[in-house]
Structure formats: C-alpha cells, structure tokens
Design a protein around this nucleic acid. Sequence first.
DNA 1: CCAACACATAAGCATATACTAATGTGTTGT
DNA 2: ACAACACATTAGTATATGCTTATGTGTTGG
Lengths: 104, 104
Amino acid sequence: MVDTDIFKALADPTRRRVFEKLAGGSLNASALRDGLEISQPAISQHLAVLRAAGLVREQRQGRFVNYEVDPDGIASIGTWLARYRAYWPKRIEALSDLLKDMDQ
Amino acid sequence: MVDTDIFKALADPTRRRVFEKLAGGSLNASALRDGLEISQPAISQHLAVLRAAGLVREQRQGRFVNYEVDPDGIASIGTWLARYRAYWPKRIEALSDLLKDMDQ
DNA sequence: CCAACACATAAGCATATACTAATGTGTTGT
DNA sequence: ACAACACATTAGTATATGCTTATGTGTTGG
C-alpha cells in the first residue's frame, strides 16, 4: 500500500527532519546529515525509505547524490487528506492561502 | 512529538481503514469493527492509538462509545503539509476545490 | 440485583524497525 | 593506477509494535 509506505516513512522523527530540510530545495546526503547526530549508514537507510515511499527522488551528481522532494509523494498525502476536507478547520485554509501568496 | 504520533497512527493500514470509516460520520467501536477481521481488543487498542494521536475523539453514549474525527488531528496534518505547498501539483488543488463544491 | 452487553486493559509473544560496525560500489583528483 | 571521497549495502542487535487470550470496568434490561 502506497499510503502505508508514506506514513511509515514520515512516522520517524529523523526522517521528517531530513525531509523538511528538502523543503527548501535539493541537498546531497552529506548536507542532509549535517546537524543530525546520526551515522552515515543511518542517513543512507533513511533516504532509501523516503525514496521507496515516493517522498524524495535522487539524482547522481558526480560522486554526490542530490535529493529533492518528489511532488508525487506530496500529492498522495494531499489526495488522502482531501477526503477529510469536511473536517478542515477554517484556519488551515487561511494558512494555505497565506503560503500561496508567499510563494510569489 | 505530536506529528510523530499522528504519522505512526496512520502508518497502520487497519487504523487507516478505521479512520476512513469515520470520514462519513461518527460510529461506535462495534460498528467500526464490522467488516474488519480483527478481535475486539485489537480495535480498542487501535482506537486508543488514534485518540492519543489526536485524530479521533470519543463520547460515551450509554454503554456505547461513539468515535468521530477530531478536526485538530486533521489540522495538524494540514499545517504540516502546507510547508510543502510549493511542491503541490496543480491537480491536488483542483481535487481540493472539487471536494469543496461537493460539500454543498 | 444480576446477567448480558460494549468496551478497555494487561500480559505475553512474534515480527518489524532503527541503529551500529563492517564492508562494498562508484567517482574524482593527482 | 590508486588513494580519498561520497554513498550504499549487509549483518547483527535492541527496542517498538500489533496481535491474541484472559480479565477488568461500566451500563442496561428483566
């Protein structure tokens, strides 16, 4: 199940920290590791999980591997969340609109 | 961490099935169990997890306990997802708008 | 009041998960 | 060619998780 992989991937705090770093743009594995007190294999494994879930995608750049947010993963969560739109409080839509404006 | 509890709760397929049943309105524990091949304690434990995550809330109704979606949980996911709005594909917004219309 | 009901909690167990240490793979500069 | 680098993979281990069985708690009808 796709959703299961996604939610499992995001259930880990370290993986969410990694993923949130990517919200600002693409980064390589070492850059993603910076600041986190975690071994190199651990980051690599976390990135594999995020990738398998469709949340990130990678691109070799010489001996670096650049990671970035995969819109497909975000889309899956959005689609899932949309089923509960009836329960969205007003403030969420307000926030959403605000961020939309900030994008410009 | 609040987000951790929410994503962990949703990482289980059975719990998502239960939660999705509640998208249509409030139901008691037995009704939520119907159709799922799972023991009574299992449902009870799943509901405890969803409740601890802030995804559902309960209300005693005689000897039944009614569960319903807790908007706070949905709001948390929405807030989290909003950080990635830049990566939302167009179709998500389209779907979102469609569902909005269907609510009327 | 007490038996049946609706649900929760406790204890025990099998499996999944996140980690580390060790090793493997691919790339680059010299 | 080869040493250093960036990253991935493997194996092993401690802990977390989801399940079942057994039992507890609160509620209701007769």
